[in-house]
């Protein structure tokens, strides 16, 4: 009992460490890509590491007090890392026994909730507007995520993510899962806070939204959480919706998954760069349409496609 538990927790930590280390790299690659499309040379790929490094050492300015306010950044990053421990990333998730698909959906929303709380707590009107927008984005995006994953659960007859992945691997592509995957991808764009959906941060309108009052190490943690989240969710997308082909050789499969994740992130970056920011009502309308279209996935799943 304890040994199994210890092993799970150690794996969980390992997972967290990997996600933490790799996510700035992915962000660096995405930035480089942006620069290329901008006709710029752009910063080096390692720039996000330097950003974090520098932020961690900077003065921590706080506009509000209290234990809760002080602990929110750590919990935000922690919740993202927890998400990383709950979903399969190339291998079985270390904490798979602790949560199924529904739990994952809630945990995925958790970091957003904590960011909102920080926004409301920091007493800035920009932060409040940002938090309010963040909530609306979450409200429009989370159903899509849910629909996509429920399609998987419906097909695999289990709510366990590992079970869904296994089913996918064994049964190959299907129309419903493809639609679900596309919907998930569109939602990912918003969850990663990328254009045209970086409405909650919207530097030019509300100066960073919920994070306007965050600085130094706190900002570093929020940024890091964001980057880690986009990486983790990209993994979720790839693993649940596009896990094939599985060669059976573990290292090769892992490599392939990583490449696919990178492709997803590159796509995200390209969409980010060729779009202006939408207004919140427009984004909600857009996701409403996406949500209704993704119900088609459910319909296909019900008729067995």
């Amino acid at each position: 009992m304890t040994a199994w538990l210890m092993r799970s927790f150690l794996l969980c930590l390992l997972n967290a460490a990997l996600a933490l280390v790799l996510s700035p790299l992915c962000e660096g690659i995405m930035r480089k890509l942006r620069a290329a499309i901008h006709s710029r040379i752009g910063p080096p790929i390692t720039q996000p590491y330097w950003d974090l490094f520098k932020l961690l050492g900077k003065e921590d300015l706080r506009s509000a007090g209290g234990v809760v306010y002080a602990s929110l950044p750590a919990f935000t990053l922690g919740s993202v890392l927890l998400l990383a421990a709950l979903i399969p990333m190339g291998t079985a998730a270390p904490l798979a026994f602790a949560g199924d698909m529904i739990v994952v959906l809630y945990v995925a929303a958790m970091s957003g909730i904590l960011v909102m709380l920080v926004g409301f707590a920091s007493a800035s009107p920009y932060a409040s507007i940002g938090s309010s927008r963040e909530m609306m984005m979450l409200l429009s995006v989370e159903p899509i995520l849910a629909i996509a994953l429920v399609v998987g659960a419906f097909k695999a007859r289990t709510l366990a993510l590992g079970g869904i992945v296994n089913w996918q691997v064994q049964n190959g592509p299907s129309i419903s899962m493809a639609i679900g995957g596309v919907a998930f991808f569109l939602a990912l764009q918003a969850l990663a806070g990328k254009l045209p959906f970086d409405i909650a941060e919207a530097d030019q309108e509300i100066m960073g939204g919920p994070l306007v009052e965050q600085s130094g190490p706190r900002l570093a943690l929020f940024r890091w959480a964001m980057w880690t989240k986009q990486l983790v969710l990209a993994f979720l997308l790839v693993e649940v919706f596009f896990p094939w082909p599985r060669l059976g050789i573990h290292q090769l499969d892992l490599l392939m998954t990583s490449v696919k994740v990178l492709v997803v992130l590159v796509l995200v970056a390209v969409i980010d760069v060729v779009n202006p920011r939408l207004r919140i009502d427009q984004a909600m309308g857009y996701f409403l349409r996406v949500a209704f279209s993704s119900l088609a996935a459910l319909a296909f799943a019900v008729i067995g496609k």
Binding site: R34, I37, H38, S39, R40, L195, P196, D198, A202, D203, Q204, V273, V274, N275, P276, R277
Partner: peptide
């Protein structure tokens, strides 16, 4: 104008 609505690509290209 591009920059204001987050369309950095327009900013970069027109300034170029």
């Amino acid at each position: 104008a591009g920059h204001i609505i987050g369309f950095e690509t327009v900013l970069m290209q027109t300034w170029r």
